[in-house]
């Protein structure tokens, strides 16, 4: 597979959220605002690329019996690095994301790509896969966060779109947990509908 294909793969055909349905916990929890979604996406992408790179580099050195503990140590190290660096240099974003940064450790997209892709593919395509999956994850989060922030708060990226009157009486459920599940259901349904249409035409 070519590098470009590895890259695009994670964005559309194997989008971690909409197609693989991985990493739901941070996805549902952080998408209350577009700013959070972008920050979380960037942090997860960084960890994903770094861990994919290292796992792929070490794939012949790590015996398969202890590969999972090794992956977890690698991932946890990068997450802690991101946590410390963000806390020092981007304190506002760090405050907004709070607990979700340490939770990247248990984000199954990252362990899933280490186990499912990086440990049997060369370094460059693993990095491409990490970038693609990261973009796919971020895009998916921004899509849901846009809908939730717009409906639940009347804003997009903290810019007031629907006006003062709406902001005072928003559709609050969109920003609450049930709203996340309901909207995710609609989005997944839409993707499946498109998929079926495409198949039917063939």
């Amino acid at each position: 597979m070519s590098l470009a294909k590895d890259l695009v793969n994670g964005i559309f055909r194997e989008n971690p959220i909409f197609r693989l349905t991985l990493g739901m916990c941070p996805f549902l929890a952080v998408t209350t605002s577009v700013r959070n979604a972008l920050g979380m996406g960037a942090a997860a992408m960084f960890v994903l690329v770094c861990s994919n790179f290292l796992v792929s580099l070490l794939r012949n050195a790590i015996p398969s019996k202890v590969r999972i503990p090794c992956y977890i140590v690698i991932i946890a190290t990068f997450v802690t690095l991101v946590d410390m660096v963000m806390n020092a240099y981007l304190p506002d974003l760090h405050r907004a994301l709070g607990i979700f940064i340490p939770l990247i450790v248990v984000n199954c997209i990252i362990l899933g790509r280490a186990e499912g892709f990086a440990n049997r593919n060369p370094v460059l395509s693993s990095v491409a896969d990490g970038i693609g999956m990261g973009i796919g994850f971020t895009l998916a989060m921004v899509v849901l966060a846009s809908i939730r922030e717009l409906l639940g708060n009347g804003t997009w990226l903290d810019i007031n779109i629907l006006g003062e009157a709406y902001t005072n009486q928003p559709l609050l459920i969109a920003i609450l947990a049930p709203g996340a599940f309901i909207l995710l259901g609609f989005i997944l349904g839409f993707f499946n509908l498109m998929e079926n249409r495409k198949r039917g035409r063939r």
Binding site: A61, I62, P63, C70, I74, A76, T77, T80, L81, M84
Partner: peptide, 13 residues
């Protein structure tokens, strides 16, 4: 292997 992975991680952190 496990020890060296952890060692490198600890030093980096």
């Amino acid at each position: 292997v496990l020890m060296s992975v952890s060692l490198v991680a600890a030093v980096a952190l």
